[in-house]
């Protein structure tokens, strides 16, 4: 891992969406989010639904044009690229979505699905080469190369997600975004996909942005983890650190809420959960976004949004307590 050279840099990313029919009213989906992902690294983003983690992903791959801030891929500013140049940039970055049912076209056989990224990138000049590439890609994700003429409905959920991953890797990207890519799968199948993604990283030096709401899975796959809440990045640190030494009260609440697969532990630790619910991003609270649910909130938290601070080397937290 080359520590000096980040592959992806997100700087002060802001993403606001207008609310239809209400002029001047915006959903504050992402507010001032900055992070870097090094080459060959897996960066995990966790948070509850509506915290903006998917919006970050979509802005990074430029499915959205950011309201403010910059996104750099391999040193190149891609924040406001137009269609043509964006296509070139997308050969370096690809995405795998949550639902393997809706992200594959049911009317296309597998070889057409897999060839699409090549077509989009203009790499489909030689049909035989394309067919060979499709077969290789299927082999790579442990599916039979003979199934290139089959249709998505003939595959199970786990197999479909393998096809989605194969498709994303067709153009040999360096950066892959997995947006809840395993959340819809059964546990035994999740582990298959996770191990496969890990192998690809070792073999090809792939860089991942791994998004999930399951903190134990994110901790397991990621080198570093970012915790999001209501559009803000609250804490960033090494993935071991997030479990051993969580600093932000929200991170602690999140950790305490995860059901532990150990009945004796559960019986002896009846820990309380976080009270209340996530406020609306249309009308976010003043000051720290978490103060409405934070057990340690003081007046300062209600008035002033804390800055990101480096509490210990490599461990960043956005909280007035530190």
């Amino acid at each position: 891992m080359d520590k000096t050279k980040p592959l992806v840099q997100v700087e002060h990313l802001k993403m606001h969406f207008p609310v239809p029919g209400r002029r001047g009213v915006y959903v504050h989906a992402v507010e001032d989010v900055s992070f870097e992902i090094n080459e060959g690294e897996t960066f995990g983003l966790v948070g509850e639904s509506g915290c903006g983690k998917s919006t970050v992903a979509r802005a990074v791959i430029r499915l959205y044009e950011p309201t403010d801030g910059r996104i750099l891929l391999d040193g190149e500013d891609i924040t406001h690229l137009k269609q043509k140049q964006l296509k070139d940039a997308r050969r370096k970055m690809q995405m795998v979505f949550q639902d393997p049912y809706s992200s594959l076209n049911g009317r296309m056989p597998v070889h057409e699905i897999l060839a699409e990224p090549l077509v989009a990138a203009g790499l489909d000049k030689n049909p035989e080469e394309v067919a060979q590439k499709c077969r290789d890609a299927l082999k790579m994700v442990n599916l039979s190369p003979d199934s290139i003429h089959r249709y998505p409905h003939e595959f199970s959920g786990g197999q479909r997600q393998r096809i989605c991953i194969a498709r994303a890797l067709m153009v040999n990207p360096r950066f892959l975004i997995c947006d809840e890519a395993i959340s819809a799968l059964d546990v035994s199948i999740q582990a298959q996909i996770i191990n496969m993604l890990g192998d690809f990283q070792k073999e090809r030096g792939l860089t991942y942005l791994f998004i999930a709401h399951d903190l134990s899975m994110v901790r397991y796959v990621s080198h570093r983890v970012g915790v999001m809440y209501l559009g803000h990045l609250m804490e960033v640190c090494e993935s071991e650190e997030i479990y051993k030494n969580p600093l932000h009260p929200y991170t602690r609440g999140l950790l305490a809420s995860i059901p532990v697969p150990d009945p004796r532990y559960a019986a002896s630790h009846e820990s309380a959960s976080l009270e209340g619910e996530v406020p609306s991003p249309v009308n976010p609270p003043s000051g720290c976004p978490f103060h409405t649910r934070c057990p340690y909130a003081k007046d300062l938290c209600r008035q002033q949004n804390p800055q990101m601070k480096e509490a210990s080397p490599g461990h960043f937290v956005k909280c007035h307590l530190y």
Binding site: S188, A191, Q192, S216, Y220, P261
Partner: peptide, 16 residues
Amino acid sequence: SIPRLDQDKGEKLMPI
């Protein structure tokens, strides 16, 4: 096949 929060990260998951 499930990762535990206290599991050592070196351990590979054992899928079925």
